[in-house]
Amino acid sequence: MRNYNIALLPGDGVGPEVIAQAKRVLDAVQDVINGYELDFQEYYVGNKRFLELGEVIPESTYEDCKKADAILMGAIGMPHGGMKPVTDKNGTEVTGHLMFKIRFGLGLYAGVRPIKSYPNCKSALCGTNRKIDLVIFRESVEGLFASYGGGGVVRDLCAYDTQIITREGTEKAAKYCFEMALDRPGRVADGKKLVTCTHKGNVFRSFAFMKKVFYEVAEQYKGRVEADDKMIDALTLLMTQNPEQFDIILAENAHGDIISDLAASYIGGMGMAPSGDIGDDHAMFQPSHGTAPTIAGMNIVNPTATILSGKMMLEWLGKRYNDVALKKGAELIDKAVYNTFDKGIRTGDVGGNASTSVFGDTVVNEIYKLGKEL
């Protein structure tokens, strides 16, 4: 039996609540499927810690995260309702002190954000029970975000940040997308395996370069996965009108940050949107949403995104270590979440009235029920 060391970072606001439900689900899966064990080590990080101790993440915790097999995080940011954002001396939020330290330090270039619909789940833009299944791939260490900690202000007259796009970074991101496309069923509309590069290459040389390198990588997958590209402004329209026409969308960091939040509205909102920050040797999984401090402690937050982030973690570990038990565990979580929504159990943000804990209870019960059928 293989032991996996998981660094657990509950964080701020609703973070501890959603992490608690995700851990319950992961524990239930371990009970049902033999052959592996998750060893959770919990750490105190986030903006609340910064206010109390002057640091978002201590170096010792970062080193432990580096040694862990994977990281599962709740959310970090504003810790309490009504508070102003917690900022550093430069006026930027201290949340980045953790996020970018881990992303840059561990080389987590692949920001994978699945957008998948579940039954009976109310969506602001796409109605209910419309089948949507696509992935936004946000390149996570380059683009405009490469300027984090850099940039500058000149005599209080102007400010600047610089976008960085490299050949190596684009090649790695594009290859990841094409490999991921090979493992997916293709776009909902017709099953076509497709990677779409979005950019603003008609105006900026960095984006034109990104597009050029993307198509060079696409040649290696010719005949297996199709490739196309869309201007970011056109993409937001086309993606909203017909999300079923997309399979995987590759975007620069800032663009990916924006369109992944937009795409979450197709499936019910941020409470439904899991994510993974993945590198060659390390990975961190977390919901796409923030800390929602105004509802923290009220037992009403949607834990789906965090539960599905746990599913992504099992998928990644299973693939990395060729562990069939973990892959089965990931499939079990997805089925249990599907069954929960199919029964009409859902939180208020997606048209239901279930509490956070009731939703978690139902998913756990479904896991044990499904486990008897294995």
Rank of each mutant, 00 (worst) to 15 (best):
I307Y: 04
E244M: 12
G256K: 06
A254Y: 08
K319R: 09
L250S: 10
A296M: 05
A264Q: 04
M272V: 12
T294I: 12
T294M: 14
M284D: 03
G297D: 12
A254Q: 09
D280C: 03
Y266F: 15
W316R: 13
I267Y: 03
I249V: 15
D247E: 11
M298F: 13
S265G: 02
D280Q: 11
D247K: 02
E315H: 13
G256Y: 03
P274R: 04
L317K: 01
A305P: 03
M284Q: 10
G268F: 00
M284P: 08
T240Q: 09
H255C: 11
M284G: 07
P293G: 14
Q241Y: 05
H255I: 15
G271H: 04
Q245N: 15
Y266T: 00
N302A: 04
N302P: 15
P293T: 14
T304A: 09
L250W: 06
I249A: 12
H255Q: 09
K311M: 15
Y266K: 04
M284F: 01
I258D: 02
A263D: 05
P303T: 07
Y266R: 01
D247G: 12
H255V: 14
G269M: 01
S288D: 09
D280I: 14
A263V: 05
H289K: 01
S288Q: 10
A292Q: 12
L237C: 10
P303I: 04
N299W: 03
D261P: 09
N242S: 15
G310D: 11
M239N: 13
S265F: 02
V301Q: 14
G297Q: 14
L237D: 10
S260V: 05
D281Y: 13
N299R: 05
G290R: 04
G310C: 07
D277E: 13
I258P: 07
D280Y: 07
P287A: 02
L314Q: 06
S265C: 05
N302K: 07
E244T: 04
A292K: 12
D277R: 02
G271W: 00
A283Q: 05
N253M: 06
W316H: 11
S260F: 04
A273F: 02
S265L: 05
G269I: 07
K311L: 06
A273E: 00
A254R: 01
S288E: 12
G269F: 07
S265K: 01
K319P: 08
K319L: 09
P243L: 07
T294Q: 12
W316V: 14
M284K: 03
W316M: 11
M298V: 08
G276R: 01
P293Y: 13
E252S: 13
A296G: 05
I278Y: 01
I249T: 07
A283H: 00
L317D: 10
D247V: 06
G276E: 05
E252T: 10
E252V: 13
A264P: 05
P243E: 07
D261N: 08
I267V: 12
S260C: 00
I249S: 13
L250H: 06
G269K: 00
Q241T: 02
N302D: 03
E244C: 04
G271I: 03
L262E: 00
P287H: 02
A263S: 14
I258L: 09
I278Q: 01
W316D: 10
E244R: 09
A273L: 15
D281N: 11
I295G: 04
P243W: 02
I300A: 15
H282P: 11
L314N: 15
E252K: 10
I295S: 06
G268T: 00
T306E: 11
G279D: 11
